[in-house]
Simulated assay, not measured.
Amino acid sequence: MLPLLLASSSPYRRELLARLRLPFTWASPDLDERRLGGEPAVELVRRLARQKAEALAGSHPQHLIIGSDQVAVLGEQILGKPHTFERACEQLLEASGQQVTFLTGLALLNSATGHCQVDCVPFTVTMRELDQERVERYVSAEQPLDCAGSFKAEGLGVSLFQSTHGCDATSLIGLPLIRLVDMLHKEGVQVP
C-alpha cells in the first residue's frame, strides 16, 4: 500500500481520518482558496479538494494524497469561515430556522499513477430558531471561528440543529469517511 498523506492542517480532518486506523501523515498545501467568478459551490469544493491533493504530489511522488474542502450554503449564499466573533453571530442569525447545506469536496490522488478520484458529498442541517443571546452564548463557549457556517457539529453546535439529513455525517465535520473508504478500496486499500 502506498503511504497515505492528508493534504490539510485541519485537526478535525486528522481526527476523522484516524478513525480508519490506517497510518497517515499530513501536510498543509499552500493554496489560494478563493472562489472563481461565478463558480458554483459544488465545483468550488471539488476543484479545491483536487488542487490541495495535487499541490503536494511533487513533494510526495509515491503517495495516496487526500484533499478535502468544505463550504456551507444558505440559499444562494456561500458561508465561509467567519474568522471573527461578530461574523460568526451574523452567520448563525442568518441561518436561524433555515436549511444550511454543507458541501464537502473530496479527492484521492495516487501520485504514482496520476489517477485522481473527486466527489462532492452534501449534508443538510435545519437550524433551530435562534436569538441573539443564544447565538452569543454559543459562539463564546465554542469559538467556531475557523468553521464553515460558524458551528462545530462535533461539539455544542449540535444543540443548534432541529434536524439533519445526509448519507455521511462525517462530511459535516469536513472529511466524508464513507466515500473515502470507497475511493481507498478502488486504490487497493482495505480498511479494517
Rank of each mutant, 00 (worst) to 15 (best):
L79H: 08
L31T: 05
C147P: 10
R87V: 06
L184A: 05
A169D: 07
R137K: 07
V71D: 02
R134G: 12
L56Y: 04
R50F: 06
V139A: 12
D30E: 07
T124N: 09
A141H: 15
A27I: 04
V181M: 05
K152L: 13
Q70Y: 15
L44Y: 05
L145S: 08
S10G: 07
G67H: 04
R87H: 02
G58M: 05
A57P: 07
G58T: 04
A72H: 01
D119F: 07
T113Y: 00
H83Q: 10
S96F: 03
L93S: 02
C147T: 07
F102D: 11
S150G: 09
L36I: 08
R128H: 09
E129A: 10
S171L: 06
H165D: 10
Q117I: 13
A72C: 07
T164Y: 00
E15P: 01
M183P: 00
Q132L: 12
R128F: 09
G188I: 03
T84F: 03
D168Q: 02
P3A: 04
C89F: 04
A18E: 09
I65M: 04
E133M: 02
V125L: 14
P192I: 00
R34G: 12
V181K: 01
T113Q: 08
R87E: 15
G80Y: 04
R47S: 13
